[in-house]
């Protein structure tokens, strides 16, 4: 019995040691980033490592420098428009489609839905080159918000997720509304949308994070500095011959990490629910 207890104790100890080990690995790089940013200017902190932030003013100076000397402020603006507009427009499109697929029967429904779902297995990156050619040659949208935002709006995953949710709305509710004389659109707008609030909000957070983390498309479609997204600027900073010090790169990293981190802190449950959802239904 005592052997069993000992085994249990060491097992528990091992469990906690392992847990803390992974905790350090998960959190330390983020902490290190903050540490590098908030250290005196001009002395790259990694050359003389210390484990705590040592200069608030140094950090503010670095952030000011990238914001006002390196165009980061404008990139922030571009990224917020990009993410905000994508969330808004994409949810409008997908929720309208999900409303139809989730609640009604009409000829061609199965075909159309399967047609859209086909995109889920089709790797996105593969169509990058022709998409670029389409957007620039046919629409002339190089270096514009239109070119940045519009091609990413038809979000098949969002459609799938919202349809699953809307399907569960009781049919009686819809029928009752129709009897009351509500139009097709107002049922969508006044009943279905409010009822799917939670799912839509989860999706909105997923789309926001995904768009904020987008590098490939902005890199392809935006070549002028006034249209650089945050991701694009960080890519630029990391290339040789750009005369940015490693401290500035970290300051940029830090500022780029803030919006998703804030979203996570405030809406943790939504974020994790969204992920778990991806896993169960995807």
């Amino acid at each position: 019995m005592s052997f069993y207890l000992l085994q249990k104790r060491t097992g528990q100890l091992f469990h906690w040691v392992l847990a803390l080990f992974f905790l350090v690995i998960a959190v330390f790089p983020i902490y290190w980033m903050i540490n590098v940013v908030f250290s005196p200017e001009g002395i790259p902190v990694s050359l003389d490592p210390r484990l705590y932030p040592s200069s608030l003013s140094g950090g503010i100076a670095k952030i000011k420098d990238i914001f006002f000397e390196r165009g980061f402020l404008n990139a922030y603006y571009v990224s917020f428009i990009y993410a905000g507009a994508t969330v808004l427009l994409s949810i409008t499109l997908t929720s309208m489609a999900a409303y139809e697929f989730g609640l009604y029967d009409f000829p061609g429904k199965r075909f159309l839905f399967a047609f859209a779902m086909f995109a889920l297995i089709m790797p996105k990156t593969v169509s990058m080159i022709p998409l670029y050619l389409t957007v620039t040659n046919k629409f002339n949208w190089l270096n514009t918000f239109k070119g940045l935002i519009i091609p990413g709006l038809a979000d098949v995953f969002g459609l799938f997720m919202l349809r699953q949710f809307i399907e569960q709305i009781p049919k009686d509710l819809i029928d009752a509304a129709r009897v009351d004389g509500a139009s097709h659109f107002s049922i969508y707008y006044k009943i279905v949308l409010p009822l799917s609030k939670n799912a839509i909000f989860t999706l909105a957070i997923l789309i926001f994070n995904r768009t904020w983390g987008q590098l490939t498309w902005p890199m392809i479609i935006e070549q002028e500095q006034n249209m650089y997204t945050v991701s694009r600027i960080i890519n630029w900073f990391n290339q040789p011959d750009t005369w940015v010090t490693s401290d500035s790169v970290m300051a940029a990293n830090f500022m780029a990490a803030i919006p998703p981190l804030i979203v996570f802190l405030f809406f943790q449950n939504y974020v994790m629910k969204g992920v778990a959802y991806t896993g169960i239904k995807g």
Partner: peptide, 23 residues
């Protein structure tokens, strides 16, 4: 006048793709 600054390689590839799309 809008000035855009880029790293060497990036400037080159941006110029070639701009030539391509007529921008």
């Amino acid at each position: 006048v809008e000035v855009s600054a880029m790293g060497d390689d990036e400037l080159l590839s941006s110029l070639t793709t701009a030539a391509m799309s007529g921008t």
